[in-house]
Simulated assay, not measured.
Amino acid sequence: MKLATWNVNSLNVRLGHVLDWLQANPVDALCLQELKLPDEKFPHEALLEAGYHACWAGQKTYNGVAILSREPVLDVQRNIPGYDDPQQRIIAATLPGPGGQPVRIISAYCPNGQAVDSDKYAYKLDWFQALRGWLDGEIGRHRDLVILGDYNVAPADEDVHDPAAWEGGILVSDPERQAFRDLLGLGLRDTFRLFEQPPRIFSWWDYRQMGFRRNAGVRIDHILATPDLAARCLACEVDKIPRGWEKPSDHAPVVATFGVA
């Protein structure tokens, strides 16, 4: 079973990229973030023609998440239950996994936070706390659970191209990293770090100052899995190829492969 995540930074702009990537990489499910379109504009027919069912939570101009899957999904949940938030950042669904064991899949677009002294930063930390509380219950209900998405947190200095330049700033501040560690404290595993990885592997590069060409990036797109599922993870990689396409998203897809129990 192959699961992937990709912040496409506007599905309307990059639908062609998504379709091309899926044709070359026929994953079982692809989680998307930053759709930047309302529900009624979601291109479900084009995706169905490509062989993918979809569930989504759209929002005009900002945010928005989706799960594209080979098989129809069950038990769809939009947003964090009980958390009053107009921003569309979470969608969850259940899919049949390897060997028939159901897998709970969550597509997450975590807040950016803007700056450590901003209201948006306070919202980010509060949102992560709400996410952790909800995930605690979800993990209790689903043995195999994976949450894929743009976390807007680089967990460690090795996930940043220049740790000294970023120190204390957004995406790498101690409270943000602690919020990420709190998710791992639920038993979730960062599938990318289950394997020996080459140095300087990132998933986001700024459009400015030739960030991608200089590999001046950060690793903020993650696939976290519950212990039993993580134990069956065979690989996790960042696919940098789409970041080099014309008019790309500033993020690259991350793909994890899981074996049968």
Results as ranks from 00 to 15, higher is better:
residue 194 L to N: 11
residue 64 G to H: 03
residue 104 R to E: 08
residue 25 N to D: 05
residue 231 A to D: 13
residue 217 G to N: 11
residue 106 I to F: 06
residue 136 D to Y: 13
residue 175 P to T: 15
residue 240 K to C: 08
residue 123 Y to W: 00
residue 29 A to P: 02
residue 234 L to N: 07
residue 100 G to R: 05
residue 101 Q to H: 13
residue 164 A to S: 08
residue 214 R to M: 05
residue 253 P to D: 04
residue 43 P to G: 03
residue 192 F to R: 00
residue 143 R to N: 00
residue 9 N to H: 07
residue 258 F to I: 11
residue 106 I to D: 09
residue 216 A to I: 02
residue 59 Q to N: 14
residue 57 A to C: 06
residue 260 V to G: 09
residue 173 S to K: 04
residue 133 G to M: 09
residue 170 I to P: 00
residue 126 D to H: 14
residue 71 E to A: 14
residue 255 V to C: 15
residue 241 I to K: 15
residue 253 P to I: 01
residue 141 R to E: 12
residue 179 A to Q: 14
residue 46 A to N: 15
residue 261 A to W: 13
residue 238 V to L: 04
residue 59 Q to M: 12
residue 81 P to D: 06
residue 42 F to T: 00
residue 62 Y to F: 13
residue 102 P to H: 06
residue 230 A to I: 13
residue 259 G to Y: 03
residue 118 S to T: 11
residue 49 E to Y: 08
residue 80 I to P: 13
residue 131 L to F: 15
residue 59 Q to E: 13
residue 151 Y to M: 12
residue 255 V to W: 10
residue 191 T to D: 07
residue 40 E to M: 11
residue 205 W to V: 01
residue 12 N to V: 01
residue 112 N to L: 04
residue 60 K to A: 13
residue 73 V to S: 12
residue 198 P to R: 02
residue 237 E to F: 10
residue 51 G to C: 02
residue 3 L to A: 00
residue 149 G to H: 08
residue 53 H to K: 04
residue 16 G to I: 08
residue 80 I to C: 12
residue 55 C to W: 12
residue 44 H to C: 10
